[in-house]
Design a protein around this nucleic acid. Structure first.
Lengths: 243, 243
DNA sequence: ACAAAAGTGTTACCGCTACACCCATGA
DNA sequence: TCATGGGTGTAGCGGTAACACTTTTGT
């Protein structure tokens, strides 16, 4: 140990900055992308909206464990897609002291994600990516970085599924690609509804369930599932998704 | 400030771990990939090989600035490709105290990279990726992570150029793709020399210099350059490299 | 002249793109 | 029966993959 509780000193020759983790949690509401934000209950930036996250503790097994802990305080989610985004370490990120943040980005099924409203968070709320409030710290930049990463990822990896439930329809999946990539109006190859299922099914890791969604004044769309096993197999062979 | 020099205490309610940066520096020798390692001059893991890196200091503007500082201590490199890889933060990474490491991965022109041998580094040396020594800390894992990232990147982004000088031949570039991706022997589409230049030139951001390399007992290969401007343009349009 | 390696050419095939049309459903 | 949205079909085009052959250079 390097913290001497007797002398209350850090007995290390090296500098020790504070470290936090923050998460950019994306959800999809059928039309557009949303980000989960919490309203800060303390200074600095009190009452301002910020990314969920907090200081890392000695008992956290890892940075990833820390994010999970923080997210559980805010919500009930268990199965989420979580990926490390980037660290943010410039000098004046936090007015209190220098803080290094390890940012993650996450994809969740928005409806399953029950917003609790945890300890120091006054309120947790979803905001459309296209209409974000003024954000605390450098969280604006972090979200933009996460969005870029998301756009990169969706091109070549099937992570869009994590924004939907186990069963989904092709139009739903398609709308996610449109929402994330936001191609120009005249880009038929992406926007044309008719090509999308063909491209997806060719990959070989999306299976029909046989079920359909009823209750709409039009033809009932088929329900599909993502076959993780088939995907891992396809990945080995070297098949790549491209959009 | 939170460190009180009078009482020699950290006046912060939060935990402060030590933070280091490590760099996985890749170089190419014409046949295979190499990694730059330094032999540790101090305990722990004294005399063992490790990644170049070190503890972050309060005066470092950012983690990236810290890596650059560390790399300059070991070497003379100015223009290198540097990208954040991932943080490593599990509990028992360092026997002294808990240390969070921000790992980077870098591509350099091996011949231009003059190994100096800095302060606490007894020696710096290149090792073939396929024949690494036993490594200190969890650096073995970090290198494997970097290799995976490199393989992902090379598929869709033209970073191979950073391993070569300003001017290079198609066979050279091809050998880099083979070395990094290491496709099976029967994978003609990648291994066949004849398809490679066509695929590359189609991208539009590789230009002929008009020069050739002489001195070999066979036809002189053409020299090409990477046109950064044309690449940025192609990227905007949405053109993507795929291998 | 020869070996070694680089450059150029060619064809068949597959998959994507851009189209049009039909079907199911609830109001 | 009508509007709405979802599913199915197809032809042309383009780029890739798998081929063979010629050219250059130093010894």
């Amino acid at each position: 140990m390097l913290y001497n509780h007797q002398t209350k000193q850090w007995e290390s020759p090296y500098w020790h900055p504070a470290v936090t983790t923050d998460a950019v949690v994306f959800g999809f509401d059928g039309v557009g992308l949303n980000v989960l934000l919490i309203q800060r209950g303390q200074e600095p930036y009190k009452n301002m909206w910020a990314l969920p996250g907090g200081f890392m503790r000695p008992e956290d097994e890892s940075a990833e464990a820390c994010v999970y802990r923080e997210l559980h305080e805010e919500t009930d989610v268990d199965d989420i897609y979580l990926e490390e985004l980037q660290t943010f370490s410039s000098r004046d990120r936090d007015p209190r002291e220098r803080v290094i943040t390890i940012a993650f980005f996450a994809l969740v099924v928005k409806d399953k994600y029950q917003v609790k409203g945890g300890d120091d968070a006054q309120e947790a709320k979803w905001f459309p990516v296209k209409d974000l409030p003024t954000l605390a710290f450098d969280h604006q930049v972090i979200i933009e970085t996460a969005l870029e990463r998301l756009r990169q990822r969706i091109h070549f990896e099937p992570i869009g599924f994590h924004l939907l439930g186990k069963e989904f329809t092709m139009p739903q999946l398609h709308s996610i690609y449109i929402a994330i990539l936001d191609p120009p109006e005249d880009d038929t190859k992406l926007r044309d509804r008719r090509n999308f299922p063909k491209k997806m099914l060719r990959l070989g890791y999306i299976k029909e369930t046989g079920k359909r969604v009823t209750g709409n004044p039009h033809r009932s769309p088929k329900l599909y599932t993502f076959d993780e096993e088939a995907y891992q197999q396809a990945k080995k062979i070297g098949m790549r998704l491209e959009f």
